[in-house]
């Protein structure tokens, strides 16, 4: 009886110690990925050139290349799950995806839900595309006017609240741009880098990007919140740092035809190896 009692107390003691460790780092997702030999990454399939489909239907893009780099370093297979701005954080919370690289702006409220990993890997600002004929010069010009946008973009709300624009949100960018042409709205609010490449394509000669980009907001990739400071989060932090420091992100930017951003050039400079300076 005494033996049994001591056995139970030892078991209880073990249970409490393991529970205490578990509260800090269970590494559930990391372990799951390693056991299955497959990492499920949430990416965009409707955000060219960061994540989009090619004509044979495969999802490709700059962020997909980053996901591949992560999977290769971990030695696991990669499965891509297309996510939307409206469901990406829920997918990560539910565990449907193990990680997310989905053009997500690093915002304070989002950090409370998912584990956004530092350093940020990219940035973009908000701007509008508007007909040259309108001659917009400042954001205040948008007050009380209809402005087209895409559903799920965080800056829709900001532009509406700060400058009193009336946002008309569409499910797709093609619809939003058609509405701009049909004069249903005076401008189309979106990422400055995307607008820049549209204007450069020569299809939008009567349009311009007249305002000063606002809310330059770094993007963050995310792991589950409880693993941000555990193996997974630390690993992704390291990967993100390395890709910024060795210039591979700059190369990817070039590969996907994105206008070079000051952000990546600055990071390359800041993170440069002091021995090679």
């Amino acid at each position: 009886m005494k033996k049994l009692f001591s056995a139970i107390s030892v078991a209880a003691l073990l249970a409490t110690t393991s529970a205490a460790t578990a509260a800090q780092c269970t590494n559930d997702t990391w372990n799951k990925v390693m056991t299955r030999g497959k990492m499920v990454v949430g990416v965009k399939a409707d955000y060219k050139p960061w994540g989009f489909r090619n004509e044979s239907g495969e999802i490709v893009g700059m962020e997909i290349d980053m996901a591949k780099a992560a999977a290769d370093a971990m030695g696991v297979d990669l499965e891509l799950v297309p996510v939307q701005s409206s469901n990406r954080m829920q997918f990560l919370e539910q565990g449907k995806i193990d990680m997310m690289i989905a053009t997500m702006s690093d915002r304070d409220d989002r950090r409370k839900i998912v584990g956004i990993v530092q350093p940020n890997y990219y940035t973009s600002g908000t701007n509008v595309m508007a007909p040259k004929a309108l001659g917009l010069t400042k954001w205040e010009d948008l007050r009380g006017k209809p402005v087209c946008g895409k559903q799920g973009a965080f800056y829709n709300k900001i532009v509406a609240e700060r400058y009193g624009a009336e946002i008309i949100a569409f499910t797709g960018n093609a619809e939003a741009k058609q509405a701009l042409r049909d004069k249903k709205c005076i401008a189309w609010v979106y990422d400055d880098s995307s607008i820049g490449s549209d204007l450069a394509s020569g299809n939008w000669d009567e349009f311009e990007m007249p305002l000063v980009s606002e809310d330059d907001n770094p993007w963050g990739l995310a792991v589950p919140l409880e693993e941000k400071n555990c193996i997974f989060g630390n690993f992704m932090s390291g990967l993100s740092y390395n890709m910024l420091a060795d210039g591979s992100l700059v190369e990817l930017e070039k590969k996907w035809g994105i206008k070079p951003t000051q952000f990546l050039a600055d990071k390359l400079e800041n993170f440069a190896d002091w021995l090679e300076k």
Binding site: K48, F52, R53, E55, P82, G172, A174, E175, K177, N203
Partner: peptide
């Protein structure tokens, strides 16, 4: 609801083809 079917992929295809309004 984001299920990958014809309409979802049609939108993604238009995105992949640079979102020209002529595609609509």
């Amino acid at each position: 609801l984001g299920v990958e079917e014809l309409l979802t992929l049609t939108r993604q295809a238009m995105e992949g083809a640079d979102n020209h309004p002529e595609l609509l």
